[in-house]
Design a protein around this nucleic acid. Structure first.
Length: 270
DNA sequence: CTAAGGACCTGTCGGC
DNA sequence: TGCCGACAGGTCCTTA
């Protein structure tokens, strides 16, 4: 379920249960994820204390002394905090069993996510090529303008390119472009600097709002329903193809950009 | 170097 | 009710 706000919410949700707590055992029921779960992963983590819980892009990082457990939620993954009285369900692929009796349970129907162990810090192959964090100051107008230079891909594809900036997924790419009045298919190098600066502001704004909404709607991370808060959130364009634009009232259009459905307003976005 | 397309999976929904 | 195709929040890898 992850766009970045959801990963951030998961991060904050599990943190109180596992920070400072020893991992008793890891149980892998289905190792065939996006990357196969290494057979020795449980042995590498058993007995180690979770020092902190963090995030890099959409990777959750549970830091231990010898490295970090990296969890990616893919398209359909989610985490819950349970105890051993909760029955194991379909697609509950991995349990991180903690010494305090809690279990971090990883569920992922489509198995596009991953659970890997990282001994190499930021040099891990999956992290090494990631771009800047969208909510950090290093993601700013100058940075994005520079990215757009000499690239003629659709601006939507560009902001979803995780080698440039991480964490902007299909939903928030659409929302931030709408707020910025930029047509999603417009060539990146054909957009005025001022408008790119506006886009940066809106990307940050849209992500922050979603994190806030996620945090407030998901007050109990042990809730049985792992549905993210942001699906109760209303979107201005995502999923609204054919419905009226909230600004001009004309029906919203839909297109495929980089094989992803994209909804936009043909008259408000140029 | 950039850009475009395929690949990986299961579940759900609409149409017939 | 059942079957079938289209589609879904990601991103890595290969090819051009």
């Amino acid at each position: 379920m992850p766009e970045l706000p959801e990963v951030e919410t998961s991060c904050r949700g599990i943190e109180p249960f596992c920070a400072g707590v020893e991992i008793a055992q890891i149980v892998v029921r289905q190792p065939k994820l996006r990357w196969p779960v290494a057979p020795n992963l449980p042995a590498q983590l058993a007995g180690q204390v979770v020092q902190s819980v963090g995030r890099r892009g959409k990777y959750l990082l549970l830091q231990v002394e010898s490295g970090a457990l990296m969890i990616h939620l893919g398209m359909s993954g989610s985490l819950r905090v349970v105890d051993d009285t909760v029955l194991v369900g379909k697609h509950d692929h991995v349990d991180i069993i903690l010494r305090n009796g809690k279990i971090i349970r990883y569920n992922d129907p489509r198995r596009f996510g991953s659970v890997t162990f990282n001994q190499q810090g930021a040099n891990h192959p999956l992290l090494k090529k990631l771009g800047v964090e969208p909510l950090e100051e290093e993601f700013n107008g100058d940075y994005l303008i520079n990215c757009c230079r000499s690239r003629k891909v659709a601006i939507k594809s560009l902001i979803m390119n995780s080698q440039l900036v991480v964490g902007v997924g299909n939903i928030y790419a659409q929302e931030s472009l709408f707020r910025s009045g930029i047509h999603p298919v417009r060539a990146a190098n054909k957009i005025a600097k001022k408008r790119i600066e506006t886009l940066v502001v809106h990307i940050k704004q849209v992500l922050k709002e979603a994190i806030k909404a996620g945090g407030s709607s998901l007050k109990d991370f042990t809730a049985s329903d792992g549905k993210p808060g942001y699906f109760q959130h209303t979107f201005q364009v995502y999923g609204r193809s054919g419905e009226p634009c909230i600004l001009c009232g004309k029906p919203l259009k839909q297109a495929q950009i980089g094989q992803r459905t994209t909804v936009y307003c043909g008259s408000c976005q140029r």
